[in-house]
Computed example of a mutant assay.
Amino acid sequence: MTRYILKRILGMFIVIFLVLTIAFLIVRLAPGDPAALMLGPEATPEETAALRTELGLDRPIVVQYFTFVVNAAQGDLGTSLFFRQPVTQVLAARAEPTIFLALFSLVFALVIATPIGIYAAYRRGSFLDQSAISTAMLAASIPSFWTGLMFQRYLATDLGLFPASGYGGPDASFIERMGYLILPSIVLGIVNSALILRFTRASMLDILGEDYIRTARSKGMGEPRVVLRHALKNAAIPIITVIGLTFALLVSGAVVTERVFNIPGMGNLVVSAVLRRDYPVIQGALIVVASLYVLINLVTDLLYLTVDKRVRY
């Protein structure tokens, strides 16, 4: 097991190192002078030269790369050109709504998809099974921004059940801010529940046809115990995999929903950074999101050990 964990951790560091390299190359491979692109066409040559010196772009490329990697390893991702603050502080200030939005969306997706997927597999071919598959395909096909706008119009504006947009004022409490995330979490949960539902159903269908399931039934074991204890436990690895991937996608892909509901998260920050040509923020966000990806994959791999003991070998 120790070897298994060490291999996964080593792979995680390799991926992060490659991401650091890609983030470094993004600015250097951009057409024209990166400093001129950041400052815009109205910048004077003196301002451009000063920014090149500040960013270290006047040094040899090898020195720039080594300095960038060393600073990133120490948690220094540079300084935002727009906010004039360290990138880590800018990202940390925007991380809370994005992380909680992803968590709430994942919980909502699991509440919808897992029981329906299990029951659809158990009643294969039934009306409920066909309805669940059709609904999942429909949910996956509808753009999240359209769903968000419809929910915002009818549930928030017309019925007043949820806040329409925003993340609360500066003095808002934590509970109040979380209330602003309920409606966008429902939107993202519905969209992402389709993939979890289909994987849960497919995985359960494979297990329910196994010989040991028929043996358990022939011994008189109750159906809930057969389905939940024997079938679901052995079907858990593909389900855990898709849950981990879904959470990673929610963290990195909630840009549209954050824009629709005006949530000041990391997705909204990256879009604004692109428009402002704030390359240090873009680089930092790329590194942070990639690190979250590999960390979630590592946690998913470690969960395999607790679900299926055979993974140890």
Rank of each mutant, 00 (worst) to 15 (best):
2 T>P: 06
5 I>C: 05
10 L>D: 00
11 G>D: 14
14 I>R: 10
20 L>I: 11
21 T>W: 03
22 I>M: 14
23 A>P: 02
24 F>D: 06
25 L>T: 13
28 R>K: 13
29 L>D: 05
34 P>W: 07
36 A>P: 07
37 L>P: 05
38 M>I: 13
41 P>L: 02
42 E>A: 14
42 E>G: 03
45 P>E: 08
47 E>R: 12
48 T>K: 13
53 T>L: 09
53 T>G: 14
56 G>E: 01
58 D>I: 01
61 I>N: 04
65 Y>R: 11
65 Y>D: 14
65 Y>K: 01
66 F>T: 15
68 F>I: 02
68 F>R: 08
72 A>S: 11
72 A>P: 00
73 A>T: 03
80 S>A: 01
82 F>W: 12
83 F>S: 12
90 V>F: 00
93 A>H: 09
94 R>K: 14
94 R>T: 01
94 R>A: 12
95 A>N: 00
98 T>E: 04
99 I>G: 01
100 F>H: 15
100 F>R: 11
101 L>Y: 04
102 A>V: 02
107 V>M: 09
110 L>T: 06
113 A>E: 07
121 A>T: 10
124 R>E: 11
124 R>N: 12
135 T>K: 00
137 M>N: 10
137 M>I: 08
137 M>P: 01
144 S>V: 15
144 S>A: 13
146 W>M: 09
148 G>K: 06
152 Q>V: 00
153 R>T: 07
157 T>R: 11
157 T>L: 13
162 F>A: 03
162 F>V: 05
162 F>M: 09
166 G>C: 09
167 Y>W: 11
169 G>A: 05
170 P>S: 09
170 P>C: 02
172 A>I: 12
173 S>D: 15
178 M>S: 03
180 Y>Q: 00
183 L>Y: 05
184 P>M: 00
187 V>P: 02
188 L>R: 01
189 G>P: 09
189 G>L: 04
190 I>E: 00
195 L>S: 15
195 L>D: 10
198 R>D: 09
199 F>Q: 15
203 S>M: 05
209 G>L: 01
210 E>S: 15
211 D>R: 06
213 I>P: 04
215 T>Q: 06
215 T>V: 13
218 S>V: 08
218 S>P: 06
222 G>W: 08
225 R>L: 10
227 V>N: 07
231 A>I: 14
232 L>K: 13
240 I>W: 08
242 V>A: 09
243 I>R: 05
245 L>P: 05
247 F>P: 10
250 L>R: 08
255 V>C: 10
257 T>D: 00
257 T>E: 04
258 E>T: 01
259 R>G: 12
267 G>S: 08
273 A>R: 07
273 A>Y: 04
275 L>I: 11
275 L>N: 15
276 R>Y: 10
279 Y>N: 14
279 Y>C: 12
279 Y>Q: 02
279 Y>I: 13
283 Q>H: 15
284 G>Q: 13
287 I>D: 02
289 V>C: 01
295 L>F: 15
295 L>N: 02
296 I>Q: 04
298 L>I: 08
298 L>Y: 11
301 D>K: 04
302 L>R: 06
303 L>H: 05
307 V>E: 08
309 K>A: 10
311 V>Y: 10
